[in-house]
Measured scan of single mutants.
Amino acid sequence: MASQGTKRSYEQMETDGERQNATEIRASVGKMIDGIGRFYIQMCTELKLSDYEGRLIQNSLTIERMVLSAFDERRNKYLEEHPSAGKDPKKTGGPIYKRVDRKWMRELVLYDKEEIRRIWRQANNGDDATAGLTHMMIWHSNLNDTTYQRTRALVRTGMDPRMCSLMQGSTLPRRSGAAGAAVKGVGTMVMELIRMIKRGINDRNFWRGENGRKTRSAYERMCNILKGKFQTAAQRAMMDQVRESRNPGNAEIEDLIFLARSALILRGSVAHKSCLPACVYGPAVASGYDFEKEGYSLVGIDPFKLLQNSQVYSLIRPNENPAHKSQLVWMACNSAAFEDLRVLSFIRGTKVSPRGKLSTRGVQIASNENMDAMESSTLELRSRYWAIRTRSGGNTNQQRASAGQISVQPAFSVQRNLPFDKPTIMAAFTGNTEGRTSDMRAEIIRMMEGAKPEEMSFQGRGVFELSDERAANPIVPSFDMSNEGSYFFGDNAEEYDN
């Protein structure tokens, strides 16, 4: 993207840094990872977990959730003011799984939030270390993106479920800051804005008074975040219109849905970061690795190297396929839920299948599930090659597409044709070009129609051997075009429920 120079890199967003050079960025990201790792080690000690239990991804998720809940100030305040039966607002906890007599047992633990905050700050040299908290939120978000298709949420806001490739980060909490905003897809931002506008339509006082002023500035800020994701002048001009509207209503909703559809071809720039579970960072720190000293990046080879040398386990339900569970977590670790499966298959070195073909449910185990038949197995999170994460949407291309997802959002900077089903997408653009945004709409449609099938995206960008740390010898991959490109292809993934 041309304006790259004016933006802070995501590592800076990730670490609240002012302008830093590459070495400083690597050190501050490393410091953040160190903090998460030290916190995780301490929690495993508190909970008396064995090494194996500490490497269980379900335990990692519970521990991450506990610290996120302990620092969720708004919710904590709300819980104190609106006490609900049987919930102690000062405590947080969740299921911890232990191996007892050759069987997995679930144990519900409860801790004072104050105590968890103390352990977290102690692991982070006394700081609140917001960057580390956001990092864990993005890992949870990436896992949700890989596990669930947001059909219901899309339909509720009037969008087409086939636009799911635009929904990265749709389950990120509001408090995820600049680093969170960077990884949100165009569809996620559109959905947040539509929800806001709908509230304004239904509630006369939404934009009024002292609160209304705050609401208005939040609305304009979200519009600017979305505008910054678009790469064409016409899309940005249309966002200006939406932002400046005196009284946002149905016309703005129409414009936003139009823009979301246009992003299936004229893709937005959305950041991709490899955020790993805390149970990967903990053992690495415990083994003596100093992330701050060595430096770390979320968008280069580092996460690949770390996963190459990590042992992570997962509980497996009786009829689940461990290899499929591994694929789910591998995609989440690489922030690749909406990437082209052919690119992923090449990088991973084994075939990556669409969601609907995987015999696996989510990673988390519900409290009512029976533990008797639970097994555990090693997650295979290694890769054959590594590639640089991208934040450009890439230019655009036609490809055989599917009944489910009709476009992709690249996660890796790797040369390819970008699949999208042009006739299906263009069919949504018939007729409606009147109104105050008509010239911009016409211009956007013209650009979409001009998108050429034979153009290559990320020209000359390749993948790298894991021994090639400096990215000196790019390998331009070859793809098996007979395979499906979309992950949520004609899909039956479970729906995400809060």
Rank of each mutant, 00 (worst) to 15 (best):
Q4I: 14
E11N: 07
E14T: 11
T15C: 06
K31I: 10
K31W: 04
M32H: 05
E46G: 06
L47H: 05
S50E: 13
D51E: 09
Y52S: 13
T62F: 03
I63R: 11
I63L: 14
E64I: 13
V67A: 14
R75V: 05
E81S: 12
D88C: 15
K90C: 04
Y97H: 08
Y97V: 11
R99P: 02
D101N: 13
K103E: 08
M105R: 08
L110E: 04
L110V: 10
Y111F: 14
D112N: 15
D112I: 07
D112F: 02
K113H: 10
K113N: 09
R121Q: 04
N125E: 05
W139F: 14
N144L: 02
D145G: 12
T147K: 06
Q149R: 14
R162D: 04
S165M: 08
M167L: 15
L172V: 09
A182Y: 12
V183I: 15
I201T: 10
W207F: 12
R208P: 02
R208G: 03
E210Q: 08
E210P: 01
K214A: 13
S217Y: 10
Y219N: 08
N224E: 09
A234G: 11
Q235D: 04
S245D: 01
P248H: 08
E254I: 10
L259R: 03
R261G: 09
G268R: 00
S274F: 06
S274M: 04
V280Y: 04
A284W: 14
S287K: 06
E292W: 13
Y296P: 12
D302Y: 05
K305H: 10
N309F: 01
S314Q: 10
D340E: 10
R342C: 10
V343Q: 04
T350G: 15
V352E: 09
V352I: 13
S353R: 15
P354W: 02
G356H: 10
A366T: 11
M374D: 09
E375C: 06
N395I: 02
Q398Y: 00
Q398F: 13
Q398V: 05
P410F: 01
P419Y: 00
F420P: 00
K422C: 13
A427D: 01
T430A: 15
T430N: 15
R436D: 11
R441F: 05
R441G: 02
I445F: 07
I445E: 06
Q459I: 02
F464Q: 02
E465R: 14
L466R: 00
A471E: 01
N473D: 00
Y487W: 03
N498M: 13
